[in-house]
């Protein structure tokens, strides 16, 4: 479904930062992959490379068999099939919750207004806040905003969902409501790539856990393997620091 092969990415700011070094990973249909690692390890970068919000310097990224790094690929078409959820929600601030959900449906998917609204209401129902349909993002709590953001991505009927630290900007008491929505999605068989610090979520939901450090993939394994007997010292150190 999603495959990254030897992906490299370097940022040039005040100094050179090698964000990704020879990163290869993949997700099969219906799987949940959780990427963990210390900050600056490149886990968000690889996620953003998967839908070209960052353009990888080298390597191949296949989404459903299409190489998105091929200049001939229409990235907009590929992105239609991939939902993305951001750390800072990024809801459209001038639109209501309902407006956030219907806009791309009508503009990109060319659905009728009625069809889009029905779909939107069904999804707001699913994430548990149908009563907030007419609220603007500024009047929603962080947890509610993130649930709207998830529903917004789902409204496009994506084949894959990418989550970039979806709970990191939330107050602790709101993390649960967002994770619950994500767990439901995973149970329904959604293909997901999740960058997170929520080890409980990784243990419970992930099919595979990827541990990254300093731009490289250090270790890949099942949650079982990962949390019970990790092989690398770096992984052990990281887990001992956060658990």
């Amino acid at each position: 479904m999603v495959r990254a092969e030897s992906v490299y990415k370097t940022f040039y700011t005040t100094h050179k930062i090698e964000a990704l070094i020879d990163v290869s990973c993949g997700v099969d249909k219906g799987e949940v992959v959780v990427i963990i690692g210390p900050s600056g390890s490149g886990k968000s970068t690889i996620l953003r490379c998967l839908n070209m919000l960052e353009k990888a310097d080298k390597g191949h990224i296949f989404i459903d068999g299409v190489d998105i790094l091929d200049p001939k690929t229409n990235i907009n078409k590929v992105r239609e099939e991939m939902g993305m959820v951001f750390q800072s929600f990024n809801l459209f601030r001038h639109k209501t919750a309902l407006g956030n959900l219907t806009l791309a449906q009508t503009v990109v998917r060319k659905r009728s207004k009625k069809e889009a609204q029905e779909k939107a209401m069904a999804l707001l129902e699913k994430v548990g806040i149908p009563d907030k349909a007419d609220s603007y993002p500024d009047n929603l709590s962080g947890g509610q905003q993130q649930r709207v953001a998830i529903a917004r991505a789902l409204a496009m009927d994506p084949k894959v969902m990418l989550f970039d630290e979806p709970t990191s900007a939330l107050d602790p008491e709101m993390i649960g409501e967002v994770l619950d929505v994500m767990k439901t999605l995973a149970l329904e068989g959604m293909t997901m790539v999740v960058v997170t610090h929520e080890m409980g979520f990784a243990r419970e939901v992930a099919d595979w856990v990827i541990f990254m450090d300093e731009g490289r993939i250090v270790e890949v394994g099942t949650p079982e393997h990962f949390f019970k007997n990790p092989t690398h010292d770096r992984t052990k150190l990281f887990l001992s620091q956060i658990l």
Binding site: F86, F92, V107
Partner: peptide
Amino acid sequence: GQMEAARSLGMTYPQ
């Protein structure tokens, strides 16, 4: 983030 969110939904730059 507003532009990124819009692009991630498959909207083109002009849209």
